[in-house]
Design a protein around this nucleic acid. Structure first.
Length: 700
RNA sequence: GGGCCCGUAGCUCAAACGGAUAGAGCAUUGGAUUUCUAAUCCAAGGGUUGCAGGUUCGAUUCCUGCCGGGCCUACCA
C-alpha cells in the first residue's frame, strides 16, 4: 500500500475537480473504493460515508473498519490504521485518523473549501441525458384549491427547482381531470339546483374567486344527492353528456372547468408556481389515446377479458401489489395467468367505457413517447414573466414546444393513490417497457388534514369521536377544509401587522411587498419542513408562526447579512468577486490566490484554527453542503432536507452574527474574513431559499 | 380479510444507506454589552424511541409477533 499505488489510484479519479462537500465525498468514496479493491480485493457497491456528530471529529467518518473486521478477522482499529496508511494523500483532504473503536475520521483542507466557496466555483456536472417530467398539482377543476393542494404544488415545484439546480431539463405538467364526476357535480349544481342559464353562469365565472362559489355549490350538490337518491340520475346524465362532448352540457362544463382552472393558476402564481403544459382528460378521450393503448395492452396480454364472476364482461388487469406467484401446487388447478376476483382491477367496464386507470396508462405511455399519438396544443395562460403555459386541445396551434417523450417522470400524487400508480407502472412493465417503468417515480406524500381544534375554529360541529382523533380529513364534498387563498390572505394579514409595527417609516407598497414575501416564505417552508410520509395535521397556530424553524427565520438571517453590507458601504453581491476576482483565472484557486495581501481567501486557513475558528468553520461547511443536500433530496425524492439545511445554515449564521460584531472588528484582515463569511452564507441562503421558491424581503 | 404508512421530549417534528452522548422548534423557567443584533441569541429542565422477542461488535433504523392510529382495497376520479 505504497504511496506509489495511491498516486496511481489518484490518477483514475473521475471527480478530480471540485472542493465542495459533495465533490470531496465523491472523491473520498472513489479513493476508498479503489484502495479496498486493490488491497483486499473487496468490492463495496455502496460504501457508507457518514458525517461525524461533531465538527471536531472532522468532516467525514468512515465506519468501514467495523464491517471489514469479520471478513479480515482483524481488530477494527488495526484495519483502520491499515487503510489510513495505505490510502495516501487525496486532493482536498488533510488528515485521516482513527477514532473510537475503529472509526476513520477524515478532515478536509478547510482553506481550500473556503476558496472554492468564495469563488462560487461549481465544476460542470455530468448530467444524465434526457428530459424530466414532473407532474404536480392536478387539482380537480370544480372548486377552490385547499391546503392539501398547496402541499402537493409546493412539493412538486420545489422538486422541479432542485432538479433544475442539478442541471436537469424539466417539463412541468398539471393534469386536469375536466370530464369526471367532480366537474359534473358542479354542473348539476348550476343547472338543477340553482337553475342557472349558460349566460348567468358565464357572468359568475368571470367574477373574482369563482372557485369559492363552486366550493360551496359542490358541497350543496353532494347534499342534494343525499336528500333524494333520484337526484343521482342527473349526475349520471350530466357525466355522460360531458364525456360525449359537443353539446350544451359539455360546453357549460368546459366553461366552468376552464374558469376554475384559471383561478388555480392564479392561486399558484401567488406562490410563484408555474406550469408548462396542462394535459386534459377531455383530449385523452377525444384524441382516442385510450384506443391506441387498449390495442397494445390486449396484444401484450396485460388485460384479460372476464367471462364470469362479478367482473364479467370487463377487461381487467392484476392489481399492483397482489402476488401472482400462487402456490406451485395450486398452479396446476388454475388456469395460466388467472387472477382472483379480489386481485382484479377493472380497466374497461362491461359497458365498454374506460376507467381512470386505463386513461392514466395511456397518458403515461404518451409521457414516455410510447403511444404513437400526440395532443394538440394551444397557449392558455401567460405568466407575468412572459412565459406561456400550454393546454391540450383537439386542434392545436402549428408551432408549439415539444412535450412528452421524456426520459424520467415524477408524479407528485398523495399516498392514497399508491396502488393506482403502481398499477400503471405494472402495465408499462407488462407492455415490455421495463426501462420506462423503472424511471417512473410515484412521488408519494401524505395528506394534509386538520386538527380537531382547527376544524372547530372553522365552525364544524364535531362528534366526541372526532374530537379524540389526531386529525380530521379534509373533504371537498362536505366543503370542509381550508382554502389556499384564504390561508395566504391570513398569512399576509398577519405578516402585515408585524411589518407595520416594526417599520412604520416605510411606504405602504413596500410594507405590502415585505408582508407578502414573508407570508409566502412561511407557507412554503411550513409545507416543506415535514417529511413526505408525515401527515400534516394543519393548525393556524403552527402555520402562522414566523419564529423558530420557519421560513421567515431564514429570510431574516439574509436580511441581517444584507444590513451589515449596507451599513458598511459594501456590495454584498460582488464582495466575494472583488476579493478573489483577479486571481482565479488559471483554474486553480489554491495557487492563484496568493497571500499578497492579508484577507485573501488563501489566508483563511488561520481563521479556521482554534475553537472560535472551528465554530465559524461549521458555518462555512454548512454553506459548502448545498449541492450535496440537493443531490440527496433528488436521490431520495425528499425536499424536506433542503428546508432543514436552510434552517441549520441560518441558525449557524445567527449565532455567528451574534458573536462577531463585524463592522466593529479592528483587525482589517479578520474583518474582511468575517465579511466574506457573511457574503458567502448570504449567497447560499438566497440560493437555497430560491430553490424553496421564496425570496427575501428588503427589510424585516 | 388483504396491502401500504405511522407510533421518538408536554406539543409538532428530525435522525438517507444499521454507527460515536437520539437532535430541533414550540411551550415553560431564567438570562443577553444602548453595537451590523430581539421575527434574534445564550442557558436550564424535559426520553425505557408503543410493547415483547430476534439478527448484529452495534438497532429509533432490519426481521417476527402483539398493541394503538391512519389510508387504500368501487364496473368513482
Amino acid at each position: 500500500m505504497s504511496t506509489e499505488r495511491s498516486v496511481r489510484i489518484t490518477f483514475f479519479f473521475k471527480h478530480l475537480e471540485g472542493f465542495l462537500y459533495r465533490h470531496l465525498e465523491c472523491r473520498l468514496n472513489e479513493a476508498l473504493h479503489a484502495f479496498l479493491q486493490s488491497t483486499y480485493g473487496l468490492d463495496f457497491p455502496n460504501l457508507v460515508i457518514e458525517q461525524p456528530p461533531k465538527v471536531e471529529f472532522g468532516e467525514y467518518a468512515l465506519p468501514i473498519a467495523f464491517e471489514l473486521a469479520r471478513k479480515l478477522r482483524k481488530a477494527p482499529r488495526k484495519i483502520a490504521e491499515e487503510i489510513i496508511a495505505g490510502i495516501g494523500t487525496v486532493p482536498g483532504f488533510e488528515k485521516f485518523e482513527v477514532a473510537g473503536a475503529g472509526y476513520i475520521n477524515v478532515r478536509v483542507n478547510r482553506a481550500q473549501v473556503a476558496i472554492e466557496l468564495v469563488a462560487d466555483h461549481e465544476p460542470a456536472e455530468k448530467v444524465p441525458a434526457g428530459k424530466v417530467l414532473v407532474e404536480h398539482s392536478s387539482i380537480n377543476p370544480n372548486k377552490a384549491a385547499h391546503v392539501g393542494h398547496l402541499r402537493n404544488a409546493i412539493l412538486g415545484d420545489t422538486f422541479v427547482r432542485l432538479l433544475r439546480f442539478a442541471g436537469r431539463e424539466v417539463d412541468i405538467q398539471n393534469y386536469i381531470d375536466n370530464t369526471g364526476v367532480q366537474v359534473a357535480d358542479v354542473v348539476v349544481g348550476f343547472l338543477h339546483i340553482e337553475k342557472k342559464t349558460r349566460a348567468e353562469i358565464e357572468v359568475l365565472a368571470a367574477a373574482p374567486r369563482f372557485d369559492f362559489y363552486c366550493w360551496d355549490l359542490y358541497a350543496r350538490a353532494s347534499q342534494w344527492y343525499e336528500q333524494d337518491k333520484q337526484n343521482l340520475q342527473k349526475r349520471l346524465a350530466t357525466l355522460h353528456a360531458i364525456e360525449e362532448g359537443n353539446n350544451e352540457t359539455a360546453a357549460i362544463a368546459d366553461l366552468i372547468s376552464i374558469a376554475v382552472l384559471r383561478r388555480h393558476l392564479e392561486t399558484m402564481d401567488r406562490l410563484d408556481i408555474e406550469y408548462d403544459f396542462l394535459p386534459r382528460e377531455s383530449e385523452i378521450l377525444h384524441l382516442h389515446f385510450w384506443d391506441a393503448a387498449f390495442t397494445k395492452l390486449k396484444e401484450a396480454g396485460v388485460l384479460t377479458y372476464e367471462t364470469e364472476g362479478k367482473n364479467k364482461g370487463c377487461w381487467v388487469m392484476r392489481r399492483a401489489g397482489t402476488s401472482n406467484t400462487s402456490n406451485t401446487e395450486d398452479a396446476g388447478d388454475q388456469e395460466e395467468g388467472k387472477i382472483t376476483e379480489e386481485d382484479q382491477k377493472v380497466i374497461v367496464r362491461s359497458n365498454g367505457t374506460v376507467g381512470y386507470v386505463g386513461k392514466d396508462i395511456a397518458y403515461h405511455m404518451w409521457k414516455f413517447g410510447l403511444l404513437g399519438r400526440d395532443f394538440g396544443y394551444r397557449k392558455f395562460y401567460r405568466y407575468p414573466n412572459g412565459r406561456d403555459c400550454w393546454i391540450s386541445s383537439t386542434q392545436g396551434e402549428k408551432n408549439h414546444p415539444h412535450f412528452g417523450d421524456v426520459a424520467e417522470i415524477y408524479n407528485v400524487i398523495d399516498a392514497r393513490q399508491a396502488e393506482a400508480q403502481n398499477t400503471v407502472i405494472e402495465a408499462l412493465r407488462g407492455l415490455g417497457h421495463s426501462e420506462a417503468a423503472d424511471r417512473y417515480t410515484h412521488f408519494s406524500y401524505e395528506m394534509v388534514a386538520l386538527t380537531p381544534r382547527c376544524a372547530a375554529e372553522l365552525g364544524y360541529e364535531l362528534s366526541e369521536e372526532d374530537k379524540a382523533r389526531p386529525w380530521i380529513e379534509v373533504s371537498g364534498r362536505k366543503g370542509f377544509g381550508v382554502k389556499a387563498d384564504d390561508l395566504m390572505d391570513a398569512l399576509i394579514a398577519s405578516a402585515r401587522t408585524e411589518v407595520d409595527s416594526r417599520h412604520p417609516e416605510l411606504e405602504d407598497a413596500e410594507r405590502a411587498a415585505i408582508a407578502e414575501k414573508i407570508a409566502i416564505g412561511a407557507l412554503r417552508f411550513f409545507m416543506l419542513k415535514y417529511t413526505k410520509p408525515s401527515v400534516i395535521a394543519f393548525d393556524f397556530k403552527d402555520a402562522l408562526s414566523f419564529e423558530g424553524e420557519t421560513g421567515p427565520y431564514v429570510q431574516y438571517a439574509v436580511v441581517r447579512a444584507t444590513n451589515i453590507f449596507r451599513k458598511g458601504g459594501f456590495n454584498p453581491d460582488s464582495f466575494c468577486r472583488d476579493r478573489i476576482g483577479i486571481a482565479s483565472s488559471d483554474g486553480d484557486g489554491a495557487r492563484a490566490v496568493s497571500t499578497e495581501s492579508s484577507g485573501n481567501a488563501a489566508d483563511f486557513g488561520r481563521y479556521f484554527e482554534g475553537l472560535d475558528g472551528s465554530e465559524i468553520w461549521e458555518l462555512w461547511l454548512s454553506a459548502a453542503k448545498t449541492s450535496y443536500i440537493v443531490a440527496q433530496c433528488i436521490a431520495t425524492t425528499e425536499p424536506a432536507y433542503i428546508a432543514k439545511h436552510a434552517f441549520q445554515m441560518a441558525q449557524l449564521f445567527n449565532t455567528f452574527y451574534h458573536r462577531h460584531p463585524i463592522l466593529a472588528e479592528a483587525d482589517e484582515g479578520r474583518k474582511r474574513f468575517l465579511l466574506t463569511t457573511a457574503a458567502v452564507v448570504r449567497r447560499e441562503l438566497i440560493r437555497v431559499l430560491n430553490m424553496m421558491g421564496s425570496s427575501v424581503p428588503t427589510a424585516m
